[in-house]
Simulated scan of single mutants.
Amino acid sequence: MHVRRGTPADRPFMMGLAGRLAGVADFPWRTPAELEAFQHAFMTEALARPDTLTLVAEEADGGPLLGFAAMEPHPDDITGGPGGYLSLLAVTQAAEGRGVARALVAAAEETARQQGWQVLALDVFATNARGRRFYDSLGFRAETLRLVKPLPPAEG
């Protein structure tokens, strides 16, 4: 396996992983259709930004694509210093457990350093326990936590 810069030709592959990204969220107050629509819209917007950098993992022999990461410049929320945001990370089901996500994050970190970024931030669904353990194992730590309370419709 190797990681390379993504190209516009990789976009259909990336968008094809929207369902996998939406599928790790488990919120009783959200329908699968809402989560899928959110993920598709989020990915469409993130991948359309001109400053988004994409990385793609593929089999070394030019075989199938295995996963991708997308990142963009984003100042450090605390200091305002140079930083980046890892907006997307997904691997195919067949690539799970093969170190593909770890290789993509390592490549993202190296790219971030080359950009002069001092931090790399990301968001992960709170119910994605596997993802949270993975990011924790790579040294990512929580700085903020967004809490959501579903509200019943207003009466009257």
Rank of each mutant, 00 (worst) to 15 (best):
F125R: 03
Q118V: 07
F134D: 07
R130L: 10
R146A: 11
R133Y: 05
W117Q: 05
Q118C: 05
V124Y: 07
L138H: 09
A121M: 11
G139H: 07
F134V: 09
L122V: 09
R146Y: 09
R130V: 15
R146G: 08
F125L: 01
F140Q: 05
A126H: 13
A121G: 09
A121I: 03
F140E: 06
R146E: 14
N128M: 01
A142F: 10
Y135A: 10
A121N: 04
L120N: 00
L122E: 05
V119D: 03
V119G: 00
G131N: 11
R133P: 02
R146S: 13
Y135V: 05
V119K: 10
F140W: 15
S137W: 02
R146T: 13
R133N: 09
L138Q: 03
R133E: 14
G116A: 07
R130T: 14
R132E: 07
V119T: 14
F140C: 07
F134Q: 04
F134H: 06
T144F: 12
L122Q: 10
D123T: 06
D123N: 14
S137D: 08
R141D: 12
A129Q: 12
V124I: 12
R133V: 00
L145W: 08
G131T: 03
S137V: 05
G139R: 08
L138C: 07
W117N: 02
L120P: 00
D136S: 14
A129C: 04
T144M: 12
S137Q: 08
G116P: 05
V124P: 02
N128P: 02
F125Q: 10
E143F: 13
S137R: 10
F125A: 13
R130W: 12
F125Y: 14
A129S: 08
D136R: 13
W117D: 00
L122Y: 04
R146M: 13
T144D: 14
F140V: 01
T144E: 15
D123L: 08
R146V: 13
Q118A: 11
E143R: 06
L120Q: 00
R133G: 04
